[in-house]
Write a protein that binds this DNA or RNA. Structure first.
Lengths: 191, 191
DNA sequence: CGCGTCATGTAATACGTTACATGATTCC
DNA sequence: GGAATCATGTAACGTATTACATGACGCG
């Protein structure tokens, strides 16, 4: 597991409150690691008892105080030891692929619904790609290879961009395939 | 959730015992949905009580009897209603991306270890791609657009192939980036 | 004055992972 | 004779998701 580690990386990049972390997990870090605020608060609590992070209370004008968390030396050490451990193979969960193979057992109506869903899904990914490209122009207009942190953030972003482009091409392939099918459902398995 | 649905698609494609399903989830279906035998047995039990699937006891020479599961009409109906529901956005978990961004806070030794890990990871993905391409040559040597089931299985496989190619290209980019870094860890966050 | 956002949580339930368990067969 | 595979599970634990809860502030 490594929500802890994703949080440590984020806090090393810049200290943050639990709420701010949750928003980062909705935006930039969410590109490669998702988490909800409930998970984050629970893990922050555990990390504090382990002395991986320390809080600083910060008063705000008109808003309740917030606890700004920073990575402590023990947290940095835990992160580094995890960084040097072998990468676990990813657990793949691709719901759309299940639906596509399932479409063999649905009829014309269901296939049309799936085509519409794939188009909507493609629109989402187009928007994600546009957001990544805008972020790249904003954050990396003039890459500096001596800036390790920036170079690493940039290569992860390029991975997101490559992923989205691949998905968009594949979704075009999926749509062409779905549209080219005979409209009769496959009933071989239940005659 | 949709382990149930992945199982239904698999059983509609071909009835199977729990054990056979677990092996499919290690191989072909595992490309886009992973599950262990413990999960599968638990879900099969639930699906049987819901009358989504039915078992047929099959005796085997020298081996214990096996229960061969098939999708029942209620299961097919449940699958079709799920197929027509909106696709949920995927929850992304990309451990390697976390490690890459974390590498900004590790030193030369840690970066070298990460380079070695990325190379190993790239070898795994090369092997996966080779396996997909071999499967494509074996199962789809002469695609027939009138075969809906085959066309849909094939487009999902092409998605896997496109994904692996994208990952391999990106890993080359990652390696070039890691090798081009200044070997000093980034300590701005913990001065 | 109601809605959205900032900010922080608890509780219940569902899901996933790891380890353990059993017993037969086939292959080397 | 030992290892691997077939076949089916149970138990314990940890993680994730969903719903619920609270309260202050700012905007229109």
């Amino acid at each position: 597991m490594s929500l802890e580690h994703a949080i440590l990386v984020s806090l090393l990049e810049r200290p943050a409150s639990g709420y701010e972390l949750a928003r980062r997990f909705d935006r930039s870090i969410g590109r490669f690691w998702t988490a909800t605020h409930q998970q984050i608060y629970r893990v922050l609590k555990r990390m504090e008892t382990d002395a991986w992070i320390t809080a600083q209370e910060v008063g705000q004008d008109g808003l309740p105080d917030k606890k700004v968390w920073s990575a402590a030396p023990a947290g940095r050490a835990a992160l580094i030891s995890w960084l040097r451990a072998p990468v676990q193979p990813e657990a793949v969960r691709h719901e759309l692929a299940v639906k596509i193979r399932g479409a063999a057992f649905d009829d014309e109506v269901g296939r049309a619904a799936l085509v519409a869903e794939v188009e909507r899904y493609r629109d989402d990914h187009r928007a994600t790609l546009a957001g990544y490209l805008a972020g790249e122009r904003r954050d990396f207009p003039d890459p500096d290879p001596r800036d390790a942190r920036g170079s690493l953030q940039h290569v992860v972003l390029r991975g997101g961009i490559a992923y989205e482009r691949m998905v968009l091409d594949w979704l075009d392939d999926v749509l062409a395939t779905l549209r080219g099918l005979d409209p009769t459902p496959d009933r071989k398995a239940t005659p």
